[in-house]
């Protein structure tokens, strides 16, 4: 390992520190994206993020403790020259073993409670009579959204009102897809022959990038969508205009073919 040591000692430490400082000060840029789980814009994604954060912090504590013991053992008990002391004859220690069974068990029980609470919160379906209903159909390789109560269909773009729970019923016309809008909610699969359910809500107006997360064929990488959250009044205007278009074209269903969200 000589060469490595020499290499390390020759590194220009001020320069290394400089690069690190630059990288860290640009921190925001390295942890943000167009569709980040870390930037939730609605209650579902927020609950999911807080679960992620709590578990991460607990796990970090565990990691530090385990690595502390590990590092201590490696350094303290490495073989040294001219050390003639005997190795420990210990073959086990019941109290210690009970300790490191029970403590993890307690942690796991705590995490389980959080998990079950969140799970039930997220899968409690909003009242269908008061919330907007949308049927989502996955196709190779695009998303179709039907608003059964409103007589509107769209492709690629899902329009929703801000501040209202939206009830999604998902299925697929061909293979399995997975509906994912990281800033609004985690995934639910769209499975042929099944109807699956999820709800989401946007707390702020804006457009949110969504994708298909389940591998579904050559176009999988490009199966995107946009969720457009409009203030309720504007949403009503959009509904009216779509219905008018539908009436003009002689069908009850209006189709809005949004632009395909940016691909490469």
């Amino acid at each position: 390992m000589r060469p490595v040591k020499r290499f390390v000692s020759r590194l220009k430490w001020p320069a290394v520190l400089g690069i690190l400082t630059v990288a860290l000060s640009g921190c925001g840029n390295y942890f943000s994206s167009r569709a980040s789980v870390l930037a939730p814009a609605g209650p579902v994604a927020s609950r999911e993020l807080s679960l992620i954060q709590i578990s991460l912090y607990i796990m970090l504590v565990i990691f530090v403790v385990v690595m502390g013991l590990w590092g201590f053992a490696l350094i303290r008990y490495r073989a040294r020259r001219n050390d003639t002391s005997a190795v420990s004859a210990s073959t086990g220690d019941t109290r210690l073993e009970i300790l490191w069974t029970v403590v993890p068990l307690l942690i796991v029980i705590y995490l389980t409670v959080l998990t079950v609470q969140t799970e039930f919160y997220l899968t409690r379906r909003p009242n269908p009579t008061t919330s907007l209903q949308v049927s989502v159909t996955g196709h190779q390789f695009f998303w179709q959204f039907d608003y059964p109560g409103l007589g509107i269909s769209t492709i690629h773009n899902l329009y929703i009102p801000v501040g209202e729970k939206v009830n999604l019923t998902l299925t697929s016309a061909d293979v399995i897809h997975s509906f994912w809008v990281p800033e609004l909610a985690g995934k639910t699969d769209a499975i042929p022959g099944y109807h699956t359910y999820m709800w989401l809500e946007a707390s702020r107006a804006g457009s949110y990038f969504g994708e298909c997360a389940q591998f579904c064929g050559v176009g999988h990488y490009n199966m995107h969508m946009t969720v457009i959250a409009l203030p309720p009044a504007q949403f009503q205007t959009w509904v009216k205009s779509m219905q008018k278009k539908g009436a003009a074209s002689g069908t009850a269903w209006a189709l809005e073919r949004g632009p395909l969200p940016v691909s490469s």
């Binding site: 590990w70 220690d93 073993e97 998990t115």
Partner: peptide, 27 residues
């Protein structure tokens, strides 16, 4: 979710046992 997390417990036992195998040894 519960059964899955339960696996972490015996897995953790193993990790600690390895560390304590090194403890007091001559590595």
């Amino acid at each position: 979710a519960i059964t899955t997390m339960a696996i972490a417990v015996p897995t953790g036992v193993k990790i600690f046992n390895w560390i304590f195998t090194m403890w007091g040894g001559k590595i």
